[in-house]
Design a protein around this nucleic acid. Sequence first.
DNA 1: TTTGATGTAAAGCGATCGTTTTACACATCA
DNA 2: TGATGTGTAAAACGATCGCTTTACATCAAA
Lengths: 181, 181
Amino acid sequence: MEKQQEIIEGAERAFEAEGFRGIGVDKILAHSGASTRTLYKHFGSRDGLVIEVLKHRHLAFMELLREADPSDPVGQLFEIQRRWTDGHINSGCMFLRARGEYAAISAEITAVVDDHKRQFGTEIGRRLEIALGFPDADLAMQIWLLFEGATALLGLRGTLALDTGKEAAALLIRARREYTP
Amino acid sequence: MEKQQEIIEGAERAFEAEGFRGIGVDKILAHSGASTRTLYKHFGSRDGLVIEVLKHRHLAFMELLREADPSDPVGQLFEIQRRWTDGHINSGCMFLRARGEYAAISAEITAVVDDHKRQFGTEIGRRLEIALGFPDADLAMQIWLLFEGATALLGLRGTLALDTGKEAAALLIRARREYTP
DNA sequence: TTTGATGTAAAGCGATCGTTTTACACATCA
DNA sequence: TGATGTGTAAAACGATCGCTTTACATCAAA
């Protein structure tokens, strides 16, 4: 019951550092010290492990969203991402990376990613409505772009990308409030 | 002199569809009909081909930037991306994908990506200065986030991501003009 | 007409891939 | 005590990997 989690968390670190397709099961398991037999007992296949890693990451991210300070609900998105970067390699969004590397061969992995992104997009809309007092799908999408852009550039520009995204989101929200009271 | 280009362009399509590490040289070459011998004669190694694909893509993108209508220099960034999406698979930024998949094993590929992104970041600053009349590094970074976010979400949300990014960029520029004349 | 450059076809190199298998260790609990 | 569950170690499976090699075709320039 415990090794399963260790394998998932080790694989998460391995995929962050070396990509999904560019690393073999032996190297993946070196991060947790488990044997190949244990991997196939718990996950059935390498792809099965990838799916569980993504689902684990999704749940962990949703948990961070739930814990976050409810004031400034939109700005907290970027703060959550800032906290996440401590102790992690910033190689862009793990979900989009998985989608790019598996799109041609695994519809199931694509579906897990799309599910996560759909939920995240909905969450942004929800948070924006709290901040604004009314829903605004266009502005929610704009903030989503800022978040994804900040995540993509985290590896190249560091946390400045998060500062910039947070600031731009606040600016757009302020402008929206002023022009439609 | 001609097969070399055919191999590069075929490989570009192959990497877009299947990722960089998730495809072998045989499948890469199936897109151009070339033999493995020709590949290794021209590029020396698989990694050598990857580098040439990225450099080719960089030059093609810079050429599109040069051709673009000079009025509305910032909005044109998104229009260029829109034109690019015709006839291409939208699997996120190819440079960032390459960086993620090769970061652990090829410093040269990482360097090519970083070079491209640095030049693109500079180009955004240049275009913003034209639109604004004065430089603004913070706003340039904000627009960069919008662009990268739109690119990342192109596969999931289609060209709506580009519309949204372009609109948000215009909004931010307008706000900046009004508050600091 | 010969030479050299450029190409394909196809077999094979050792290495590594994902996966399975055999054999064994160590707990917990009936 | 003995069955069961969970784990490791290590060898081996066929397939595929990046890459090299041999053999041969084409064609323009010298």
